[in-house]
């Protein structure tokens, strides 16, 4: 039961309190770009969830491999680490493009525009890097250093993105129908609205410096 509650805490904190968009601004470009086309956003969120899960599992696997060969994680810099993640993500992306365009042409045509943005963005690459940081912080606690922990973290990053995007989308619908000054219409109003949401969510995490 204790184990379960720990996973629940991990899930809630990644979806709500430490939401990647509101606490660190990761994926903000994509959110603003996706919201311009509301029809694509569920599809995009689904794809993003898949890739964040994969990437956080990849980060966990990499630490397992490093531990097997007795290499200190400190030896491998974050840039090198992220390059390896990117190489794997590229392979995955290319494979999915080849397979889908061959065997599921209609589905590929449907997702082909959203797919590259869903793979190569700050949220997908940020998830394993953040999870590695989290594991260093939670050293000794079993749930963080676990395959299930990696899956839950990755899934919740994606769900958090969908949650944030739907909040922003609903707010922007309201804002667009209001009488705004000309200079604030569109993008500036979106920035400020996301800022207010981030202010609201920062109360849940408490006062912490970013990064």
């Amino acid at each position: 039961m204790n184990f379960f509650s720990q996973y629940l805490m991990l899930a809630i904190s990644t979806v709500v309190a430490e939401n990647l968009l509101f606490s660190r601004g990761l994926g903000s470009d994509e959110i603003i770009r996706v919201i311009a086309k509301p029809k694509e956003f569920m599809l995009f969120g689904g794809l993003l969830t898949f890739f964040t899960t994969t990437s956080s599992i990849m980060g966990w696997l990499m630490d397992v491999v490093l531990g097997r060969f007795n290499i200190s994680p400190m030896l491998i810099s974050q840039t090198l680490r992220s390059m390896i993640y990117l190489l794997v993500l590229c392979g995955l992306y290319y494979l999915s493009v080849r397979l889908l365009s061959k065997y599921a042409k209609d589905f590929y045509d449907y997702i082909s525009r959203a797919l590259p943005i869903a793979v190569f963005n700050t949220a997908v690459l940020g998830a394993p890097l953040l999870f590695a940081k989290l594991r260093v912080q939670m050293l000794g606690q079993a749930y963080a250093d676990n395959f299930a922990g990696a899956i839950i973290f990755g899934l919740c990053v994606g769900i958090g993105f969908l949650f944030a995007a739907s909040l922003v989308l609903e707010g922007i619908r309201q804002i667009d129908s209001m009488d705004l000054p000309d200079a604030f219409r569109g993008l500036p109003a979106r920035f400020i609205y996301i800022g207010f949401l981030a202010l609201a969510f920062s109360g849940m995490a408490g006062h912490q410096s970013v990064i």
């Binding site: 509101f22 601004g25 000054p181 109003a189 920035f191 800022g195 981030a198 006062h207 410096s209 970013v210």
Partner: peptide, 26 residues
């Protein structure tokens, strides 16, 4: 004002600067 290091200040400042930039452009 320590909350200035948090992300919401960044979003709000970006919004204000974008609005100012648009006004200048017009």
């Amino acid at each position: 004002f320590t909350p200035a290091t948090m992300s919401f200040t960044g979003f709000m400042l970006l919004g204000l600067i974008a609005a100012g930039g648009r006004k200048l452009r017009q």
